[in-house]
């Protein structure tokens, strides 16, 4: 299968998944207390306003028609209006999404840069004290709620040792946020910790599996030294399954960002979402769910394409 065909099919699949997501969000919209009208207009809306809204939005029509109408509104970029911030949801999200993306991508990069060598090293030193130590650490890191870890980080690196600020950089634009890199350190570490835990485990398992592959024996039979085998052959082969897992991990990463942003008061989508949850600002909540889901689908798609670049077998049409 050609790369183009593959891309087309994969994008089509992604579109299908996004459509299913819109159905889920549409269902949530109808599950709102008092129905979508009260959910969107807010608790203070009068019965007359609601009736008018229902008519305008076609909410007196059958469900499938309502869904199509809903899709059409989405397609025009209209996600409704926040009734606590009195701004279009789309504007709010456009302001904050890039900041969240920066935070998650930074966390992911830092996490992977640590996890991959750690996992490989563990595999090479399998069942030695080093391996046990890192295994235990990664279990603990995985089991530590991000906010608890974040709190410890703040206590340690902001209060006891005044190295980094306890608050994330503030500002409306991405530039303002990035102009204060010290403020990003603790949020990024908190976001990266569980990633290190999870991916060092994956990398360890993948490396161990590859070390027992026949091709390693062939290379040894040809006189290649262990270190060279590890870096020339095992490393790349172990990366393939790890890249595949990256796709699955995108939603977890966004979930983590939600907590990290709340904890460090980082002005991204997570914080927006959290404040909306506190004030039952449903248009914002549902808009965020939709956008985050689309971002997840796109992230997964990118991970798949990356895997195809790394592994010629996938590109060759065999999977």
């Amino acid at each position: 299968m050609s790369t183009l065909m593959y891309l087309a099919r994969r994008v089509l699949q992604a579109v299908l998944v996004i459509l299913i997501v819109t159905v889920v969000v549409f269902c949530l919209l109808h599950a709102l207390p008092g129905g979508p009208a009260r959910g969107i207009l807010g608790a203070q809306a009068t019965a007359q306003q609601i009736a008018q809204f229902n008519h305008e939005q076609g909410l007196d029509k059958p469900l499938p028609a309502q869904y199509l109408y809903y899709l059409r509104t989405l397609a025009s970029g209209d996600l409704g209006t926040s009734y606590t911030l009195n701004e279009p949801v789309s504007t709010l999200i456009v302001q904050r999404l890039p900041k969240t993306l920066v935070l998650t991508v930074l966390s992911a990069i830092v996490g992977l840069l640590l996890a991959i060598p750690l996992g490989m090293w563990q595999a090479v030193r399998r069942n030695k004290p080093f391996d046990y130590a890192i295994t235990t650490l990664s279990f603990v890191a995985y089991a530590t709620p991000v906010y608890f870890l974040g709190l410890l980080l703040v206590l340690l690196f902001s209060q006891v040792l005044p190295w980094f600020p306890a608050q994330a950089p503030q500002g409306d634009t991405l530039g303002q946020v990035l102009s204060d890199p010290a403020g990003l350190v603790l949020p990024v570490i908190a976001g990266a910790a569980s990633m290190v835990a999870v991916f060092s485990r994956y990398m360890r398992a993948a490396t161990l599996e590859n070390l027992s592959e026949d091709y390693v024996r062939t290379a040894r039979a040809g006189g290649t030294r262990r270190r060279a085998i590890l870096w020339r052959h095992v490393f790349r082969n172990s990366l393939t399954p790890v890249t595949a897992m990256l796709g699955y991990y995108v939603p977890v990463l966004f979930g983590g960002a939600l907590v990290v942003e709340q904890l460090f008061n980082y002005p991204g989508m997570g914080l927006l979402f959290w404040s909306a949850a506190q004030s039952s600002d449903y248009p914002v909540l549902l808009g965020c769910v939709l956008v985050i889901s689309v971002a997840t689908v796109v992230g997964t798609l990118l991970a798949d394409i990356l895997q195809r670049v790394i592994d010629p077998r996938v590109a060759g049409g065999r999977s």
């Binding site: 592959e213 026949d214 091709y215 024996r217 062939t218 290379a219 039979a221 040809g222 020339r232 052959h233 790349r236 082969n237 393939t240 790394i310 592994d311 010629p312 077998r313």
Partner: peptide, 16 residues
């Protein structure tokens, strides 16, 4: 000394 193995399907590094 060199060696030839039984399973040619897995004896070579798939990514090299």
């Amino acid at each position: 000394v060199s060696m030839v193995f039984q399973e040619p399907a897995t004896a070579l590094d798939p990514l090299t």
